[in-house]
């Protein structure tokens, strides 16, 4: 059993301080995201630029500094937060829904399904605006496939669930390869390949506008249902005997997760591991109660994604695709979880 090591201090002040610190993280992430970068902007100037709508800028601050902070870094940090929060809350929800702490939308193939839809749209239409509308149905399709294969299966089938996830994600990964094979190698293939690695490099306010509403409403919806998610995690029959309409609740959750993940995929490509790892860190910090775990996962995911993105754009002269970084950090962490529990949850 995982997570029995966390210290139960729900009522104590230690726990409140811990929560307060967690809730401060996104603020820290936001400011670091605005200060740090290959173009030097002083802390003082960042604050002046941020306050510029209220107090007009002094002439000493260059226009270029303003455009770096407000035009590039701010939308990028905000989008990273949205995507990080969305993927993490989706991961936590899926882990409860499938009663399995080792699943997430990317392990079960939802991300791959949505990505296939997205690059299909890239190939056929070449427009960003239409991508979410093609990504979403494919994201939903992949969850439906998983769900259909796991109907009528009880607790003993957690290994089976992960296997079906591998099946679904393999199918969509193969289809993605097929599209890459077909795509024009000089024009569309590089776009598709780079996009698939996951990146916030070319983020603009129009990306933010495109996915802001679906991701935020999906997250809020999941957060509102967070106590019910506890009950669903007990298993179908127990949840039913506690008066829950399980089919309705499951589809509400699956729908919300699909909207969030497909939107995230649309603007940032495949960013793996976040949805798996962040809820585990959340559980280690605050325990498994989804009433607290879900908001904490949201906050941690938002902050984590900004920190990773800072590394992605400052570590080397060229940008490192963020999907590569999350895998480099996420995969070893998963290995650590495996070894720590000895795989006993299988």
């Amino acid at each position: 059993m995982l997570n029995k090591t966390y210290v139960q201090t729900n009522s104590s002040s230690v726990f409140s301080i811990k929560l307060a610190l967690i809730y401060l993280l996104p603020l820290v992430a936001l400011f670091l995201g605005l200060f740090l970068g290959r173009y030097q902007v002083s802390i003082e100037n960042v604050f002046k630029i941020l306050l510029s709508p209220i107090f007009p800028l002094e002439p000493g601050i260059l226009d270029i500094e303003k455009s770096v902070v407000l035009g590039q870094r701010l939308p990028r940090v905000l989008l990273a937060m949205l995507v990080g929060a969305g993927l993490s809350v989706s991961g936590a929800t899926f882990q409860a829904l499938f009663r399995n702490p080792i699943v997430s939308p990317d392990i079960l193939g939802v991300t791959q399904g949505a990505s296939f839809g997205a690059i299909l749209a890239l190939l056929l239409f070449g427009q960003l605006a239409i991508i979410p509308f093609v990504a979403l149905p494919f994201g939903l399709l992949s969850v439906f496939m998983i769900y259909a294969m796991n109907r009528n299966r009880q607790i003993a089938s957690r290994l089976y669930l992960v296997l079906t996830g591998i099946v679904v994600s393999s199918v969509f990964t193969a289809l993605i390869s097929l599209i890459k094979y077909i795509a024009d190698p000089f024009n569309k293939l590089p776009t598709i390949t780079y996009w698939l690695m996951g990146s916030f490099a070319s983020t603009s306010y129009s990306d933010l506008r495109l996915v802001f509403l679906p991701i935020i409403s999906g997250i809020v919806f999941l957060l509102l249902l967070r106590w019910r998610i506890n009950i669903l995690s007990l298993g179908d029959e127990e949840a039913q005997s506690l008066g829950i309409n399980i089919e309705k609740l499951k589809w509400l959750l699956i729908g919300a997760v699909s909207v969030v993940c497909s939107s995230a995929v649309t603007v940032s490509g495949i960013i793996g591991w976040v949805g798996l790892v962040i809820p585990h860190i959340g559980r280690l910090l605050v325990g498994p109660d989804h009433k607290i775990l879900l908001p904490v996962s949201t906050i941690l995911g938002a902050s984590f994604m900004v920190f990773i993105d800072i590394i992605a754009r400052t570590a080397t002269a060229a940008e490192i695709p963020i999907g590569i970084l999350t895998a480099i950090i996420g995969a070893p962490f998963f290995a650590y979880l495996l070894m720590k529990s000895g795989g006993s949850w299988m």
Partner: peptide, 20 residues
């Protein structure tokens, strides 16, 4: 009685009885 997937505390578990 069976194995639990998520290690809720006893109080959290009993509180779930209020769901109906």
């Amino acid at each position: 009685s069976h194995e639990v997937v998520f290690a809720y505390t006893v109080l959290e578990m009993v509180l779930m009885g209020r769901a109906p």
